[in-house]
């Protein structure tokens, strides 16, 4: 079992500068995540929940306040922190096996250990038999499983999930939520899930952090004192879900799913899974 870390976020502020104007994105976020805890973060679009994850994983910098993993300030990315994005972001020219192995490219393991870790993690996400398939041959749900395996193969202390099932159909989503719960139990690591799906947040989280937008703040932290596996149709489940939804005001209560930030990108599409805005480019 991997070592699980304590994540301490203290008075975190983050702002962007857009054409000379400062735009506050996150304001005074304070949150402690215990080792091995599963925390869900919900909020409508623009509440900065994805930015929060990007800060924790180290893809964003320039924040004020403290962002500590086991007391160490987070600077840049690290193999201790894994992430699964909404799009699977698999490398289309590599097979399932090679994509998972990519996570171990810079791990200090022998080749034999790497091979074993890859095999174990493909098994963990239930994709035995698909080792040599290419991403264009996989469904959206399968691709997301590969992405989870790639993020976990390093045995990170924290796994961050940024709306990982947002682009999947309802059945696949429900199934993968169960799978994620099983993986969390099996691996014993800390997981932070960002979602706009309140049911998903309550189903998986030991606590649900409700955020509000412009600027992104924590509105309330709702503990979910229900034993696993949770019954989505149960009365106490419904009460907690309603409690979380009540934080979003009347009109949101009607719909169990809050308005997604954008129409979900088609996942697992062969042609161009990564449509980019014009002008996006890479440079050394």
């Amino acid at each position: 079992m991997a070592h699980a870390a304590t994540l301490a976020i203290q008075h975190l502020h983050k702002q962007y500068t857009v054409r000379g104007e400062t735009l506050p994105v996150l304001e005074d976020i304070t949150l402690t995540v215990q080792p091995g805890e599963f925390v869900s973060i919900v909020g409508s679009s623009g509440c900065g929940k994805s930015t929060l994850l990007r800060l924790i994983v180290g893809l964003e910098a320039d924040y004020r306040g403290e962002l500590l993993l086991d007391g160490q300030r987070i600077v840049g990315t690290s193999l201790d922190r894994g992430i699964v994005f909404q799009e699977h972001r698999l490398f289309p020219w590599l097979t399932v096996e090679q994509n998972v192995a990519l996570g171990l490219l810079n791990a200090e393991l022998s080749e034999a250990d790497k091979r074993q870790a890859v095999r174990e993690h493909i098994e963990l996400v239930g994709l035995q038999g698909f080792e040599t398939a290419h991403p264009h041959q996989l469904s959206g749900g399968m691709s997301q499983r590969v992405a989870i395996a790639r993020a976990l193969v390093n045995r990170p202390e924290v796994l961050l999930l940024d709306e990982p099932f947002g682009a999947l159909d309802a059945l696949t989503r429900a199934h993968l939520q169960q799978e994620l719960h099983r993986i969390w139990k099996a691996e014993g690591i800390t997981m932070i899930l960002v979602t706009h799906d309140v049911e998903e947040a309550v189903y998986l989280g030991e606590k649900v952090v409700v955020m509000e937008p412009r600027p992104g703040r924590i509105r309330r932290i709702v503990p979910v004192d229900l034993p696993y596996p949770r019954e989505r149709g149960g009365a106490s489940f419904g009460r907690i879900k309603d409690d979380v939804l009540s934080e979003f005001g009347g009109e949101a209560r009607a719909a169990a799913v809050l308005a997604p930030a954008a129409p979900p990108a088609p996942s697992g599409h062969a042609d161009s899974p990564y449509a980019l805005p014009a002008g996006a480019r890479f440079s050394f």
């Binding site: 990315t77 193999l79 490219l105 810079n106 980019l276």
Partner: peptide, 28 residues
Amino acid sequence: RSVPAELIEVARVLRFTRWQLLTRVVLP
């Protein structure tokens, strides 16, 4: 220039070196 920024981010998360970034992400 058309290499997706999303894949470059994955390379950053997985701590690729510049050489790995070039040979495993940019060129393919």
